[in-house]
Nucleic acid binder design. Structure first.
Lengths: 183, 183
DNA sequence: CAGGGTCAGTTCATTCAATGAACCTTGGTG
DNA sequence: CACCAAGGTTCATTGAATGAACTGACCCTG
């Protein structure tokens, strides 16, 4: 059998859903993409925030780059360091994450809202498909403001989780190098 | 460590997306749900259409029943036979499948549309979130008509694939026992 | 310039899940 | 009674995930 990168072999399925799952259907993959929307860009930040094994994370990042979902690019030369940012194809996954999150919030029992997503332009909370009910337009992820909800752990163990506590705009990179912030 | 049914252990994630993926994030699971929308209800039909190993299918069906996504119910007594049908919670996954399918069609290279989904009331093709652009309402899956697209294999090997060739309304169970139809 | 620290991985032994084939059970059919 | 269908279960094998340890490039501090 052929190498097949890591395709899960249900490519033969006559279905765009199956094709999408070939790319983003593996364990951890969609959580990596979610974190990328939250502003995570560096290997170590994905690592600490996700808690995934290092080898798995490396494999997923590489697969997402090969699939054109993430772009790997140099952000400093001296110790050569790369970051992973969403491409247009990756940004197009926003409705998938919205739909999954909406379902997880509404349909999994005992779910307290962890985060809220608002239209940055007008402050209205987004509808289930990522549209703004007030402006009646689909809101691109760059115009989404993420606000903490009641279910959000106010003191996560990892620094990335702490950086994601406040109100933030999606896709804005996590702060690095300057100063942690509070305390 | 606790039994944990088959939860993939990223439940600790502070995120409704992660909670959703706990339920439907495993290999094959979303394809089972997709087939349920297409009208597949029986173990053997899932089996032949998906090509998943029997043990995996049995595990996924059971997990989906326990998660309240599918309902298992007796459809005949004499040889006792059960079928699996979507619950309200399962039906709420329709936007997730729509979003995944839309992304797979639009963003995975070389994808020819396999199926089209239309509003049964007016015939308009659905938008990316499952809404009807003409009626401007979200279309519940029961009002969706599925039509074959150019990318659909006109002669699939399995009988279930053949039964799904034509124009069908979602959720309508596959024909059984009477007569196959054509040829 | 030795020692320690950071970042981004790779390697490796172990564990766990997926695969495919065979088998089993219940109840009908010829 | 032999055979078949539906809906599984069991089991050996393969493959992927896990977590810990290690590597290597580069910087900083004393």
């Amino acid at each position: 059998m052929e190498p097949m990168a890591l395709g899960k072999d249900y490519a033969h399925q006559q279905c765009s859903i199956a094709r999408a799952l070939e790319v983003v259907g593996e364990r951890w993959t969609l959580l990596v993409v979610r974190d990328a929307f939250y502003g995570v860009r560096r290997y170590n930040d994905f690592l600490t925030h996700l808690g995934a094994p290092r080898a798995v994370l490396a494999a997923r990042l590489q697969a997402l780059v090969e699939a054109g979902v993430l772009d790997r690019r140099r952000y400093q030369e001296s110790p050569p360091r790369d970051e992973y940012v969403l491409t247009a194809r990756g940004l197009a996954l926003w409705p998938v994450l919205r739909a999954l999150g909406a379902w997880g919030r509404a349909e999994v029992p005992g779910a307290v809202p962890v985060r809220h997503f608002h239209h940055a332009d007008c402050g209205t909370e987004l509808g289930p498909y990522g549209e703004c009910p007030a402006c009646r337009v689909p809101v691109p992820p760059g115009d989404v403001e993420m606000r903490p909800g009641a279910g959000l752990d106010p003191d996560p163990g990892d620094p990335v989780g702490r950086a994601l506590l406040g109100t933030r705009r999606l896709l804005v990179p996590l702060p690095h190098g300057w100063e942690g912030g509070n305390s």
